[in-house]
Design a protein around this nucleic acid. Sequence first.
DNA 1: TTGTAAGCGTTATCAA
DNA 2: TTGATAACGCTTACAA
Lengths: 357, 357
Amino acid sequence: MDKWDTGLERAGRFLVTMSELAQSLNLSTSTVSRALTRPEMVAPETLERVLAAVKANGYRLNGIAQSLRTRKTKSVGLIVSDIMNPFYSAIVRAVEGVAASNGYSVIVCNADENAEKEDEALWVLAERQVAGIIHAATGANLETLRALRGRGIAIVCFDRISGLEDTDAALVDNVEGARAATRHLLALGHRLVATIAGPDRLTTGRDRLRGFRDILEEEGLVVDEAYIERGDFRRESAYAAATRLLSLPVPPTALFVANNEMLIGALDAIRERGVTIPSELSIVSFDDVPWAGYVEPPLTVVAQPTEQIGRTAAELLFRRLEGDDAPKTVVLMPVLRERGSTAPPGADAREEVMRRD
Amino acid sequence: MDKWDTGLERAGRFLVTMSELAQSLNLSTSTVSRALTRPEMVAPETLERVLAAVKANGYRLNGIAQSLRTRKTKSVGLIVSDIMNPFYSAIVRAVEGVAASNGYSVIVCNADENAEKEDEALWVLAERQVAGIIHAATGANLETLRALRGRGIAIVCFDRISGLEDTDAALVDNVEGARAATRHLLALGHRLVATIAGPDRLTTGRDRLRGFRDILEEEGLVVDEAYIERGDFRRESAYAAATRLLSLPVPPTALFVANNEMLIGALDAIRERGVTIPSELSIVSFDDVPWAGYVEPPLTVVAQPTEQIGRTAAELLFRRLEGDDAPKTVVLMPVLRERGSTAPPGADAREEVMRRD
DNA sequence: TTGTAAGCGTTATCAA
DNA sequence: TTGATAACGCTTACAA
């Protein structure tokens, strides 16, 4: 039995380049290349011989060489803020899925919601000569985005808008989602309604706050600025914000949290202070999470069609790569999923009290 | 103001190749190349001129061309079963982190626990000429793995063993984890202890079952085969398995579930049948989940050091790439996290009954 | 239908 | 210290 190779040097046993393969078949590389890419242009029996040799030797062409020659790569970049966030995990999965079915690979980068890391990631992807980039923009780095586009890299953003001119985007109607959440709280009878909003720098942060404000104003309620907290879409900020809200002389009876990570921070603060949901505080958040139905009480959320966002973003990109260069923005609709964390103010207290003894 | 480029053609405005850059500086490409890769080999003032031009033009070298010439790429492949599973998300994050800090990019592939998709992913990564591959092996595709290694691609597996000879691996002590979980159940007084195990084909499946059996035997308990269900690490299989277990004439009072996805399936079945945890059934699972502390009751689990597994796998890979070719396996220790889903048989029933009325 | 040869954008060898 | 030149493995005119 023959030994497998030890390590990092190239194998001698297999024909690993096209010219080796061609030589062993007494053909030119052009013919082998044609057999592989435009089989109809070679004689049937030649084709067969080539294919047989390819199979026998486990030959796979060198994608790097191919890319250099054709000035095209079969890879796209994907920049997310935090792969651990189920929202982005779903995006990665969807993008990987449609990319793979188009014969493309996905290079995933983590930007950690940090403009410099995003910039670095963009340039690295450019160096790798990706055909296109899908990203959740921090909003900075407009110059870089323009430069990459100038180099022929297609840019698609999802979740939020980068500010790049005439870009493609797969978005969700954040204003409407926030409106739905807020409307739901008011419909339950709440009047002391607070929010933990996202950063102003992001369209998602702004839009979700706007939807919240809209509804309160439409209902003729005065918007108490003490009830409007700012977070940065991370847990810790929401933990602090929720703590402040609960310490208010007149704490809110209902809370709208602008994303899933901040929901966790808020939940921690709420639990720590022994406030019961929904009897003492109703809570609704933007973004569903896979476990929202398993917690007690199950969480009312505004769910985004995450898979669909990812799929759409990828489809917009491949559409570009196929030559369609009309800028296109797709706005998807979020949906309110009523579960147990929202209720009329003061409701359901009995059970909770019993449980706490 | 100048217009940004429309789309897919190359920009004219910037000097985008090394020869253009060299020409504009009246230098040869060799000098520019040296300035960029071995700055100590060029005259200081030349270096400065080059660097200035690079900056002014936003020049980045073409990684594809560089790779072709040096026969090295700065990318590694990562094959996971399901990016949405928080276990794998954590791996992706950790691997991406250490790769980025080593100047490498990560190409992520989803294999969906499917041997053919894994094989395809392996070959695609080979085509992209990745320097190495980190994967959670399905256990099939040994031939492919050998072939890739023969081509000089470093292979590291995590979570489970591929069967590849002398491979690097970042693993967890699955037997010990399962032993800890089972020991915990017995210590609580359970004697009717069941498990939903993973597939025999995977080392994780086998080892976690072995740990379970070990402890029962060590305690002198007969292992009732009806209490040993097989799943495939997916939700649905565990849903079915849990349903069967709960329908047994003498249902178990405690259950050990072999991974986090199956935990969800089991939870669904348990909830559907109105069985209360932990009073009627104690449950402990392998794999922690980010939300384990938020559900009611909080879940007792055997937690894996996921980030550390990913980091270790990546470090093993880069160690190889730096020339160290002694095969190395790192086995990390899981830890039992006792939370609320396990209790002595029959305990805590009062509260649950009250809540159900 | 097949082969020859040039070239993609780098790096490495060798001379100057 | 710098430059000419070849080469990495492929594709693609063009010629045969």
